[in-house]
Write a protein that binds this DNA or RNA. Structure first.
Lengths: 335, 335
DNA sequence: GATCCGAATGTAAAGGATTACATCGGATAT
DNA sequence: ATATCCGATGTAATCCTTTACATTCGGATC
């Protein structure tokens, strides 16, 4: 693998010129440019990234951490982020933290060490070791959050209006005639779970049905919804609102195990609109998040920070959509 | 952020000594070592990776490409790989190729450019641009495959015995009494799909039931199984063997849509044992692959190559397991 | 007491690219 | 004809670390 020195020699120019041909071609005369490019092509020269990054103090990489890479929701966000990053000349390093603070810190160190230029974290927990970076005055820290807006973090973020989305779900159920509704939330510590819960309660209250909500705390995983569903069925709810499609899947499973059927006996509504949601049995009514767009916008926000553009919008709210499929229907009582 | 020069000055030693303290501590006297470490700790010194990698020509990174990051199967493999990589002092860069050869090549370039020390690719397609690297004589190319063993590639790989696993599935169905069995495969180009198909045919043939198999070509996605399932139901199959759990999910959905029920009317068996498989309705009988272990072993194989250990086993076959859940039962005719 | 050895440490080159600054030559202005 | 300017290119410093080789020094050997 040739170095820039050899390319320069072959083309009969200095290394500076070769470098310019590659990074600022307009500064070089056409003659020289073509000659150098020809040599580059023939020799298969590729700039050494370590040398470049040593000199420029830039890595052209963005670190994207997710709490759980096996979660299909995050997978779609990652895709959107990768696309946008590629457009901006960055590549994405994906890190799976498994909800483990130690691993989070390890990844965060990559930022401190400047192995990557910026960090996007999905989920609600900002690695502890980055706090100093944020509080530092001056240029904004190259850190952006996706999905889990947490105002006190002081980090730009991209998310939907979770309260409004949740209200839509509840209104849908109330509109169908449901008066006993189970709600399975995310963990209490999750800001978006709180927002969704607040939105749900608001919507019920507005309809004069505050007491129709039966709330259980889950953790977004299918397993966590099982017990709650069993329990809520015993409380005679006619509908279930789960704060993730995975939990909705658990709910459907528990409903079947109880010898009941969805939506005849119990309606179920999820959250996320995973690619598989349409293949649930019955196909799942759910709130769709613009997953790829969330990924894309987080990257754009981060790139703005990296390029010193101080973007006017540090909080980006994207649109959600209620997707009505077969898992919600009128309760038996209304038929 | 201090450099090694400042640390050396503070500790009253040369940069060489600081470097040794960090990488080969046994070469340094205890006194000096402790003094330097103290300074390192206080100053928060972290070696600059770009400079190090420039000097050593190593990046301490492994690139892991997957054809589709939203596939839950790959997610588990990635986890295993990350763990093993961490153990070996490497970090993992995950790349999602979306089955796009251009993107594959882009990632492969990271290897040519030495941005990463090695490449693990899941799936069956080796990026074209890497062919020269493989054919080069001498040290083995730092490339390992996971999941999709393809003998002609000449790349070390880790996988299960797909033919045997598939035979297990067919034998299970035959043992239950099924005599008309639909098989929904992966794409024809996929070597593991071919292996599984061969295994299925073998098993059926051994049982004298070669003609009981009704084969349809899918693409591992839930959507692709829908039409095939409808079609196979029309052919009066009593059981379906899908080469992925996702397709099994599509099959279950199509069975429901047809007004039939699983396993009463049609048994379904999948492949992979995704985390969600147990929450399918009914819980899915499937072939479990040791996903995390596949990830781990690919990394170990790669690290051996990187360290010049020529490992005796260039092909690693791991154990699979048939997990019987609720989606398979005797056919109605046998009851 | 001279010689040798080895452990501990230092010196300085090397790794490859970028870029501020210097230089050169020709075109334009006066 | 001379001064000025500008575009194109070259020179060389710089980014930070690692490591081959050199040096130093105390102790063992003869």
């Amino acid at each position: 693998m040739p170095t820039i020195i050899e390319v320069a020699a072959l083309a009969g120019v200095s290394t500076a010129t070769v470098s310019r041909v590659l990074s600022r071609p307009e500064q070089v005369s056409e003659d020289t440019r073509l000659r150098v490019l020809a040599v580059v092509r023939e020799s298969g020269y590729v700039p050494n990234v370590a040398a470049r990054s040593l000199r420029t103090l830039r890595a052209a990489k963005i670190l994207l951490t997710v709490p759980d890479i096996s979660n299909a929701f995050f997978a779609s966000v990652i895709r959107g982020a990768e696309e946008a990053a590629r457009d901006a000349g960055y590549s994405v390093v994906v890190g799976d933290t498994r909800h483990d603070p130690d691993v989070e810190d390890q990844y965060a160190d990559m930022l401190s060490r400047r192995e990557v230029d910026g960090l996007i974290f999905l989920g609600h927990r900002l690695p502890a070791s980055l706090a100093p970076m944020l509080s530092r005055k001056g240029a904004a820290a190259p850190i952006v959050n996706g999905c889990e807006y947490s105002p006190d973090l002081g980090v730009p973020s991209v998310h939907i209006d979770n309260a409004a989305a949740s209200a839509d779900a509840i209104e849908h159920l109330i509109g169908l005639g449901h008066r006993r509704i189970g709600v399975v939330t995310g963990p209490e510590i999750s800001p978006i779970s709180r927002d969704r819960l607040a939105g749900a309660i608001d919507a019920a209250t507005r309809a004069g049905l505050r007491d129709s909500l039966h709330i259980r705390i889950g953790d977004y995983s299918a397993g966590s919804a099982i017990d709650h569903t069993r329990d809520l069925i015993a409380q005679d709810v006619t509908a279930l609102f789960c704060f993730s499609d995975e939990m909705a899947m658990g709910a459907l499973s528990a409903i079947g195990d109880a010898g009941l059927s969805c939506p005849k006996d119990v309606s179920v509504i999820g959250f996320d609109d995973l690619p598989l949601a349409r293949y649930f049995q019955p196909p799942l009514t759910t709130i769709a998040q613009p997953k790829a767009m969330i990924g894309r916008r987080t990257v754009e926000l981060l790139v703005d920070i990296l390029h010193g553009v101080d973007s006017p919008s540090r909080q980006v709210t994207l649109d959600h959509e209620l997707i009505v499929r077969g898992s919600t229907a009128q309760p038996a009582s209304a038929r």
